[in-house]
Design a protein around this nucleic acid. Sequence first.
RNA 1: GCCACCAUGGCUCAGCUGGUAGAGCAGCGCAUUCGUAAUGCGCGGGUCAAGGGUUCGAGUCCCUUUGGUGGCUCCA
Length: 633
Amino acid sequence: MIQVTLKDGSRIQVEKGTTILDIAKSISEGLAREAVAGEINGTVKDLFTPVTEDCSLNILTFDSEGGKHTYWHTASHIMAQAVKRLFPGVKLAIGPAIDNGFYYDFDYERSFTPEDLQAIEEEMKKIIKEDHAVERFSLSRDKALELEKDEPYKVELINELPEDAEISFYRQGDFTDLCAGPHLPSTGKVKAIKLMQLAGAYWRGSEKNKMLQRIYGTAFPKKSQLDEYLQRLEEARKRDHRKLGRELDLFDIYEEGPGFPFFMPKGMILRNLLEDYWRKEHVKRGYQEIKTPMMLTKELWLRSGHWDNYKDNMYFVNIEDAEFAVKPMNCPGGILVFKRRLHSYRDLPQRMGELGLVHRHELSGTLHGLMRVRCFTQDDAHIFMTPEQIKDEVIGVIQLIDDFYSTFGFKYHVELSTRPEKSIGSDEMWEISTNALKEALEDRGIEYKINEGDGAFYGPKIDFHLEDCIGRTWQCGTIQLDMNMPERFDLYYIGPDGEKHRPVMIHRVVFGSIERFIAILTEHFAGAFPVWLSPVQVKILTIVEKHIPYAGEVKARLEEKGIRVELDGRNEKIGFKIREAQLEKVPYMLVIGDKEAESGHVAVRSRKEGDMGSMPLDSFLEKILNEVETKAL
RNA sequence: GCCACCAUGGCUCAGCUGGUAGAGCAGCGCAUUCGUAAUGCGCGGGUCAAGGGUUCGAGUCCCUUUGGUGGCUCCA
């Protein structure tokens, strides 16, 4: 007998060799039915794995991360099995579970069509119905290579497995695949499936390799869960900033300027409000603002290293036989500003902000609304400081970013990237700066994930990934330490000892790109921006023509207080005007009829709560001004 | 850039296996003066992304180009 400790801490005795599934059954039939895998001492295992020694065991259902992973992994095998049946010559690459489902990469003589996808899905349903048992077995390297001799990608994978690795396979009916597992015990366990899309993907993610065909799919234990998932996607589509941007007349991108967005009058209101907020907060924190030119000479970019490292992403212009580059980053300009005069250690830190429009040549296939464009405005700043000031300055930026994100109601997580293989600077400087970043994070009690070797070539960085209301994350803020540029541009300050010293530089952004941030905000709020950001905050709706004079007075009163207000005095029914204002996502509608005109009231309707009844104009003013002032969400 | 798919009036979309463009919304005009998500009637608007080809005939088939969508790579 061996002792198994369950998730709730209770212990049970089972016979050695009992499978996880049997243990689940002994706990409850329901659990056994729901179980998809088991976690033995923290490692996810197949349900048919026998338990051979004392251990802790967690029975996983679809609701857990590991459970989903197992479930989707088996679904991907079922898909591969179906594809193999329908297209015998197909070669298999890899087929993992991912965030919301799974994919499998195939190499086939012709491209799959949407009709093929249909057929594959049907075949998958058959395989599920046939309910093949899934079994696991291991082979020696030679035997494994023999078994996979017709699968060149599998052969490559096997050859790259470490000497001592177990080479395991999973078999279900007529299909066998090299796989580490774990898997569901049978194909019948998978219930609701759907193939989502077809896409090209390079073998092993490298553009030097052959492009394979990737089929994405997802699966759930219940049809209702699949429907719910599809509905969430539909919801995300409704929130798409490209659609809302056009509908709400905020911004758009035209064929005449691929990747170069246009901002409409209402979009500019939003944008200017964000920039006003940004300026105010930065002045408060001791930043100065500068503006550096859009184009600078080739020599500058040679010196900064961009010519060597970033040329493919830059645009160039010839002026009177001299070559200029349109700036892809603001730092070289900022450095010239710093260099304009001699600095004492007493002047440091110098915090110089710039809302700088940068242009980067991005591959056409990567463009995506405002999220990925070819010109965008970075809310940049460069902080020049002594090495001793690094930690405090980084903390200052971390706090600034936290303030900003919480203003919009965003949750976020933080990642720290360390020295990459290809990098410059001494070990000592890397250690100092990486530690400074760590200390700053720890000082603020912020949890962070480390991305080993993912830093910029000139220094380590902290990235802020914010999460929108439907759970997607976006990299926005970043804090990068740089010891390279000060060197290249021979920056120095005079220390207390009267000698020249090299300053350290921070590059940082909070919004990241104003354009992208606006896109994120648009999707986050589904176009219904908080009152302080709404391009139109109040819409006055008259019942009939004769109310226009009083409505005009109301409008004037609101405008006097800086409220952005529109008057809809058209000869239309009130229901129609409300519907339009609601679709325009105006936070407050003021309905003006006889009663209001006589009493000096306004009938308030909120886009969120509907009819709020009648109130004196002053009460409404107080309410909305308070919301604007507090940036209420 | 690579793979797949897509491109019809301002917007959303019909248009079967090729026979010469249609709806709703929006716009404009007229009527209606009305209390919390669509008043009625009428009118105008498209070289069917661009170019080339097949055909007696192309929105529909083929090729090229441009732009978009979803991925891959890259990234704010």
